[in-house]
Amino acid sequence: MPSEAPIVSCRGLKKRYRTGAVETVALNGVDLDIAPGDFATLAGPSGSGKTTLLNLIGGLDTPSEGEVVVDGVRLGELGKNALTDLRLRKIGFVFQAYNLIPVLSAVENVEFILQLQGVAPAERRARATAALKEVGLEGMEDRRPGFLSGGQQQRVAVARALVSRPSIVLADEPTANLDSKTAGELIDLMARLNAEAGASFLISTHDARVIARSRRHIELTDGRVTSDSAAAREPA
């Protein structure tokens, strides 16, 4: 998939937080494109703006300046509901923790997205079950999050993130709470699904092994992109 239109496009993104009289600059002019099928990692020291960037791309927060375009849609032009719907249809999320709805079973957590999309119950269940099978959780469909290990929970999250066939999966430190073996397996899983499903991945992480498996690596320092392997590999 060579140079198609980017799935995500960030231009001149700035984000400032004001706490009392103190203004913190979280992002200070980020230009970034994510191409369809990208499997990119995002790294940087604490406070470099990784989470802020993911929030802005995911439409969870609004930029102070600049613009985010997801799959051709300018997020700045969307209302709250439209933004929510965009997240539902185009973006998959894998968070570091608090990923799953605690009162729903594994399969219900996955189904939840489909229900919000209005998918009929029978199809919903079938797709959710298939998605869980895909992440290796066959037979654990009816377990509540409390009865799943950390790795299993993240797999459910991955299954949920992909079940709606999003344009991009945003993962915020997905392996931070996992041991290295489990973390490795999760990254393998995401890499495989990236290859099979074709969804782009943008993963923020500190984990060197995760970075090692990515096909594109972006470094963020002080709210700016200081290094992007894609720029080196694929000159414009």
């Binding site: 995911g58 608090y98 709805i101 605690p102």
Partner: peptide, 16 residues
């Protein structure tokens, strides 16, 4: 609070 944030992040409208 976080759970409600998650629900909205996943695409659940505030009204829902």
């Amino acid at each position: 609070v976080r759970e409600f944030g998650l629900l909205q992040a996943l695409g659940m409208r505030p009204r829902l």
